[in-house]
Amino acid sequence: MKISRNPDRRRFLRTAAGVAAIPAASCTRAGRRWRFLTDEQADTIGAICDQIIPPDQDPGAVSAGVVHFIDRQLKGHYAYLQDAYIKGVVEIEQAAQEKFGKRFSALASEQQLDLLREREKTAFFRMIADHAMQGFYGDPRHGGNRDFASWKMMGIPNPPVRGRQQHDLTKS
């Protein structure tokens, strides 16, 4: 990440800024794209979610921000599911390597579907499918459904245009 043309000046300023920078610098994930996931995990999860809600004339899971939704919730309400995600991703990556010799996200769509169909009944798949649906169809405030992707697809105006009756309570 290029932020100053002069590396020495940059180093000096960084040092001078030491104390204030401690909270940021002490955060090992600072500057990374995801809060909880690694890029590799996010990549796998994105590929799975894009099979669960594939892109077509409307956005799919990844472009609607579903991975952001999952990543945020894994540091929030779904923090208790962190292990389940890590294990699930490891398992499916191993299977992808054994069966096809590639990362899951590098597989052809049919190969991905093969692996997912085999796992359809597993707790991990059910969980990620449900979370993908929440991210895609839920409120954008949680990190998914970018630009109301799913609501536009379903024909739901948002925010609704809704006024009120002008009651005069002194007359009722």
Partner: peptide
């Protein structure tokens, strides 16, 4: 110690 430091950090 922060005020000066973080101002510099922000600027840098």
């Amino acid at each position: 110690i922060a005020p000066g430091g973080s101002l510099l950090y922000y600027r840098s």
